[in-house]
């Protein structure tokens, strides 16, 4: 076990990796245990942010900043707001009295 941790120095990268891992774990548990659908949606949003954080951490290579994960995360942010909007519209559909068009 001590061999495993020898290469983990306390750097900013390791700290943010720990934050990302903790956020993934918290939001995963919350996705499966929350009763209210909005809370599940919030958990999915935090989960996606945590995954983006882990993805951006892989961009910090020895050669410099790799721009490809940054581009992927930019695309991912826009896709996650689209998902949120569709889920919210579905959720709202249940509580509005207006007839569907």
């Amino acid at each position: 076990m001590s061999l495993l941790f020898t290469d983990i120095a306390l750097t900013s990268d390791a700290l943010f990796a720990l934050l990302g891992a903790l956020l993934v774990a918290m939001s995963l548990v919350s996705v499966f245990t929350a009763r209210h659908l909005i809370r599940r949606l919030l958990a999915v949003n935090i989960l996606s942010s945590a995954v983006f954080l882990l993805l951006v951490l892989t961009a910090r290579t020895a050669d410099g900043i790799d721009p490809i994960p940054h581009a992927l995360v930019l695309t991912g942010i826009v896709v996650s707001v689209s998902t949120t909007a569709v889920v919210l519209a579905l959720y709202l559909r249940r509580y509005r009295r207006e007839p569907p068009c």
């Binding site: 495993l4 290469d7 983990i8 990268d13 390791a14 990796a17 720990l18 990302g20 891992a21 903790l22 993934v24 774990a25 995963l28 548990v29 882990l54 951490l57 892989t58 961009a59 910090r60 290579t61 020895a62 050669d63 410099g64 900043i65 790799d66 721009p67 490809i68």
Partner: peptide
């Protein structure tokens, strides 16, 4: 458990990159 597993995985991940 999930945190520890993921943290070790991410920190020890090779970072080849396409810089």
């Amino acid at each position: 458990f999930i945190t520890g597993l993921l943290w070790i995985a991410v920190v020890s991940l090779p970072k080849p990159g396409l810089v």
